[in-house]
Computed example of a mutant assay.
Amino acid sequence: MKLAIGEISYTNILPLYYFLKREELEEKGCSFVPQIPAQLNKSMKEGSVHVGGISSFAYGQNPELYDLLPDLSVSAKGNVGSIFLFSKKPITELSHSDIALTNSSATSVHLLKVILKEFYKHENITYNLMEPNGAEMLRDHDACLLIGDDAIFKSWEKSSGLYVYDIGGLWYENTGLPMTFAVIAVRKDIARKENQLLEELYKDLQRSKQLSIQTNFQTMIQEIIHKHGGRKEFWDHYFSGLVYDFTEKEKEGLLYYYHLVYKHRFIEQPVKQLSMWKKGLESQTII
């Protein structure tokens, strides 16, 4: 069996993959499977993909299936710059509103629901999942949630009269904790069977992260500008706001997120601990 590696095309996770030694990993039996977050969540659960950056919410739904790779995540302590609520009215006035949600996310969708219910005490909001097209989403809705590159490109549009809220910033303002949007997870059954190859992948993911940080993301940013456009100053600021570690503080914020999504009945069972992969055959539990 070898390792099928899920790869999300969003720029926010790119530093973990950009400097991977792909050819060497493929020669050893790894394969890369490009997917959007919602697809990857499904593929990981079904077992057709073995390891990848899944939505934090997906881990919370099935924590018994996965171990988390240490010191790797997509997190933010404050504004994340690529998860936005675009609203026709102030966020304080969204009770009894209709909100369109991107169907490419899970973590951010439920994070928005938690923020509006827990911190703003809004009631009677109708949510509808849609393809991530801002114009279409706002045609018949009071607000829409976009993530990733879809959110970035929408935020670049000239003045549209919309209120724009960074969901990561709203979380931090109300909790004082970082928010982890994606975790690097491996299926427990695969970790036991392919632990040596997983160790090599893990070292290379860490290497890619460190090289990205050491080069201040510059090589990667030039490629992103060529592919997507945008000013260098924008991308410099964007990556400076993201955190790719998974320290005790990120774990604390993630466990509080799980506490709230369970409190509001978005997951069936509470998640009070995280199962972390380590070298060898045994995982370790972090409380």
Score class of each variant (00 low, 15 high):
residue 246 F to E: 04
residue 166 D to A: 07
residue 19 F to Q: 07
residue 110 H to L: 11
residue 196 Q to Y: 01
residue 23 E to P: 05
residue 226 H to G: 05
residue 96 H to E: 03
residue 252 E to V: 08
residue 142 D to G: 03
residue 35 Q to N: 12
residue 236 D to S: 00
residue 4 A to Q: 09
residue 227 K to F: 02
residue 172 Y to L: 00
residue 129 L to R: 09
residue 161 G to V: 10
residue 108 S to L: 13
residue 112 L to D: 08
residue 200 E to G: 00
residue 249 K to A: 06
residue 2 K to L: 11
residue 156 W to P: 00
residue 274 L to E: 02
residue 245 D to P: 00
residue 172 Y to T: 08
residue 37 P to L: 11
residue 33 V to G: 01
residue 149 D to K: 14
residue 273 Q to C: 08
residue 145 L to P: 02
residue 14 L to Y: 01
residue 53 G to T: 13
residue 55 S to F: 06
residue 31 S to Y: 03
residue 177 L to F: 14
residue 40 L to H: 06
residue 199 E to W: 08
residue 237 H to G: 00
residue 83 I to N: 04
residue 155 S to P: 07
residue 98 D to Q: 12
residue 39 Q to C: 05
residue 263 K to S: 12
residue 190 I to F: 04
residue 101 L to V: 02
residue 70 P to C: 12
residue 48 S to P: 00
residue 225 I to H: 05
residue 128 N to S: 13
residue 262 Y to I: 10
residue 3 L to N: 02
residue 230 G to V: 03
residue 78 G to M: 06
residue 32 F to G: 04
residue 261 V to Q: 07
residue 152 I to G: 05
residue 20 L to I: 09
residue 157 E to C: 06
residue 60 G to Q: 07
residue 10 Y to A: 11
residue 13 I to A: 05
residue 194 E to T: 05
residue 234 F to K: 09
residue 55 S to Q: 11
residue 142 D to A: 02
residue 9 S to M: 15
residue 62 N to L: 14
residue 151 A to C: 15
residue 223 E to A: 13
residue 261 V to H: 01
residue 20 L to C: 08
residue 179 M to G: 01
residue 185 A to S: 15
residue 202 Y to Q: 10
residue 79 N to K: 11
residue 152 I to L: 11
residue 26 E to S: 07
residue 2 K to I: 11
residue 105 S to P: 04
residue 212 S to F: 05
residue 167 I to P: 00
residue 6 G to W: 12
residue 242 L to P: 02
residue 57 F to D: 13
residue 205 L to D: 02
residue 26 E to T: 07
residue 114 V to S: 09
residue 178 P to T: 08
residue 204 D to Y: 02
residue 279 K to I: 05
residue 44 M to I: 15
residue 94 L to M: 10
residue 227 K to C: 06
residue 263 K to Y: 08
residue 129 L to K: 15
residue 249 K to F: 09
residue 252 E to Q: 14
residue 34 P to K: 14
residue 42 K to M: 15
residue 157 E to H: 01
residue 219 T to R: 05
residue 41 N to W: 04
residue 98 D to L: 11
residue 165 Y to P: 03
residue 55 S to M: 14
residue 258 Y to I: 09
residue 88 K to S: 07
residue 39 Q to A: 14
residue 70 P to H: 09
residue 184 I to Q: 12
residue 104 S to Y: 00
residue 99 I to E: 09
residue 119 F to K: 04
residue 45 K to C: 10
residue 271 V to E: 10
residue 94 L to T: 00
residue 107 T to R: 10
residue 33 V to D: 01
residue 133 N to W: 11
residue 191 A to R: 11
residue 137 M to G: 00
residue 209 K to E: 06
residue 248 E to I: 01
residue 136 E to T: 07
residue 30 C to H: 06
residue 15 P to A: 02
residue 285 T to F: 07
residue 112 L to H: 05
residue 57 F to I: 13
residue 29 G to D: 13
residue 154 K to R: 14
residue 220 M to T: 03
residue 173 E to C: 03
residue 180 T to M: 10
residue 184 I to C: 10
residue 174 N to M: 12
residue 203 K to P: 00
residue 54 I to P: 04
residue 282 E to T: 05
residue 47 G to A: 15
residue 33 V to L: 09
residue 239 F to M: 02
residue 61 Q to C: 15
residue 136 E to L: 15
residue 57 F to G: 04
residue 282 E to L: 10
residue 77 K to E: 12
residue 153 F to C: 01
residue 129 L to V: 05
residue 61 Q to G: 05
residue 266 F to A: 14
residue 258 Y to S: 03
residue 213 I to P: 02
